[in-house]
Lab assay of single mutants.
Amino acid sequence: MAEQVALSRTQVCGILREELFQGDAFHQSDTHIFIIMGASGDLAKKKIYPTIWWLFRDGLLPENTFIVGYARSRLTVADIRKQSEPFFKATPEEKLKLEDFFARNSYVAGQYDDAASYQRLNSHMNALHLGSQANRLFYLALPPTVYEAVTKNIHESCMSQIGWNRIIVEKPFGRDLQSSDRLSNHISSLFREDQIYRIDHYLGKEMVQNLMVLRFANRIFGPIWNRDNIACVILTFKEPFGTEGRGGYFDEFGIIRDVMQNHLLQMLCLVAMEKPASTNSDDVRDEKVKVLKCISEVQANNVVLGQYVGNPDGEGEATKGYLDDPTVPRGSTTATFAAVVLYVENERWDGVPFILRCGKALNERKAEVRLQFHDVAGDIFHQQCKRNELVIRVQPNEAVYTKMMTKKPGMFFNPEESELDLTYGNRYKNVKLPDAYERLILDVFCGSQMHFVRSDELREAWRIFTPLLHQIELEKPKPIPYIYGSRGPTEADELMKRVGFQYEGTYKWVNP
């Protein structure tokens, strides 16, 4: 592979701008107003304001973009700056750019259920340069409990009458099928589907988006991507930290609602779906819905739930269990780990287990898709061969690698495990991989909904998990304890083995 010439960040961002501006969906010269509902909250200060700053800094926003914060707290732009700027990672050389960014910011205080507050917000936006005809993007960085009041008031008082209007809704989209349907029906009564952007930030990850290209742009994968060759698929999300004093919020939802029903299920769809007619948003989402419709409700015998306990040999936070978090209700049975087996009941995947695993306070930070292939028929190497695996590593250190057998150097035919490896950090030294939120917010500006969740996708996802969630809430089974920093409950490994996964433990990928 030829040595790549190092590029400056300015040059890299210039390439990104060229890609972005050559499309006809990006209205570079139009006025846009980006409204952050819930501007005083954690999500706004840690993710949304920093993301908008990065896009502005790199010249990736339309030229005439204004940012308006809205929340109940009586704040000023200076207050917003004070709480969000520490997350910007701005350099001293960017000081003038930073001043320009905050000059485009404003803030309006108001209630979430008060019509007069929204009329005041609308008047404020109209007073901005060309504000009355601007395109408006409303980001709901809010708890779902206020979605209905907020969307109703936005629709009645704050819509642009000339430009387009788009609304970005953060997960969780309800707690179960019934609450999700209620919320979807409410929002759909106010906005068209092409105006609604239900954001799952995992769909903005580079390697998640790469799944489609790997599958449908490489001839070698087509013939082997089926039940005849693939023994099982494992989708993993692991965090090495616990709730760390923020367990009160987590306890309301648990690990299945927080990660599995959305992030992991979306990745499953991209692995299992048929080739779409095109890369058009609805063509892709149509195929994802077909996959979900082929999955039956989760069966309790295919589920393992766990909850982390303190590690007596650990240090600091590792010595504390979930129930030691003062914000967690006493005696909570909320799971911090889950392993679930699903089956896609169609011709391509009949009988292939899709194993979804996620948890907190585990032994490493990792998100990946792992396809394990069947054993080689007619073994001539005296059971020395391990199964081939194709691994798409989402985070950290984005990579695609194939675990395969090669001859060990020497005189004899002794096979050993090795890999074919594409590590993004080595291959793409001159490429700026956008943060997931950067990519998705740019998608909203461009009107691309491919990486957002459609209402029928959402409904099918909740259909699969709601009976299990209701059973857990009714019966309150005690989750299996696992030690902070471990791989999780051993019962999860036993479940995976029972459905056909072979864990060798003899080879570990190392970032080159």
Rank of each mutant, 00 (worst) to 15 (best):
A6W: 15
L7V: 15
T10I: 15
Q11K: 15
V12H: 15
V12D: 11
C13A: 13
I15G: 07
I15T: 14
L16F: 15
L16K: 15
R17N: 15
R17D: 15
E19T: 15
E19Q: 11
L20F: 15
L20I: 14
F21Y: 14
S29N: 15
S29F: 13
S29L: 10
D30N: 13
H32C: 08
H32S: 10
H32P: 09
F34N: 00
I35L: 06
I35W: 01
I36W: 05
L43K: 01
A44W: 04
K46H: 05
K46Q: 02
I48Q: 00
P50W: 02
T51N: 13
W54S: 07
L55F: 05
F56T: 05
R57V: 06
D58C: 10
D58T: 09
D58W: 08
L60S: 03
P62A: 08
N64Y: 07
T65S: 09
T65I: 11
F66P: 06
R72S: 00
S73A: 12
R74H: 15
T76S: 12
V77W: 10
V77M: 14
V77N: 13
D79Q: 14
D79T: 10
I80E: 00
I80W: 06
I80K: 00
K82G: 09
S84T: 12
E85I: 10
E85P: 03
P86S: 09
P86A: 12
P86E: 10
F88M: 15
K89Q: 12
A90F: 09
A90Y: 09
P92H: 14
E93Y: 11
E94H: 11
K95C: 10
E99M: 08
D100Y: 10
F102Q: 05
N105H: 14
S106T: 14
G110R: 01
Q111H: 13
Y112Q: 02
A115V: 15
R120K: 13
R120E: 14
L121I: 10
N126M: 13
N126W: 07
H129Q: 13
S132Y: 13
L137T: 10
L142N: 04
P143H: 00
P144H: 02
T145R: 05
V146M: 10
Y147G: 01
E148L: 11
E148V: 10
T151K: 01
T151I: 10
N153L: 14
N153V: 08
I154D: 05
I154E: 03
C158V: 13
M159A: 15
S160C: 13
S160M: 10
I162Q: 13
G163M: 11
G163I: 00
R166A: 02
I168R: 05
K171F: 04
F173T: 00
F173L: 07
R175M: 11
R175V: 06
L177V: 12
Q178K: 14
Q178L: 13
D181E: 13
D181N: 13
S184E: 01
S184K: 04
N185F: 10
N185W: 09
S188D: 07
F191N: 04
F191Y: 15
D194T: 12
Q195D: 09
I196R: 02
Y197V: 00
H201I: 03
Y202N: 04
Y202C: 00
L203R: 00
L203Q: 02
L203N: 05
G204P: 01
K205D: 00
E206L: 06
Q209G: 07
Q209K: 05
N210K: 03
N210T: 08
L211M: 14
M212H: 00
L214W: 11
I220P: 03
G222R: 11
R227I: 01
N229D: 10
A231G: 08
C232A: 14
C232T: 11
C232S: 15
L235H: 03
L235Y: 05
T236A: 06
E239D: 06
P240K: 06
F241L: 05
F241M: 07
G242E: 05
E244F: 14
G245H: 11
G245I: 01
G248T: 02
G248F: 05
D251G: 05
D251T: 06
E252G: 14
F253A: 11
F253R: 03
F253H: 06
G254E: 01
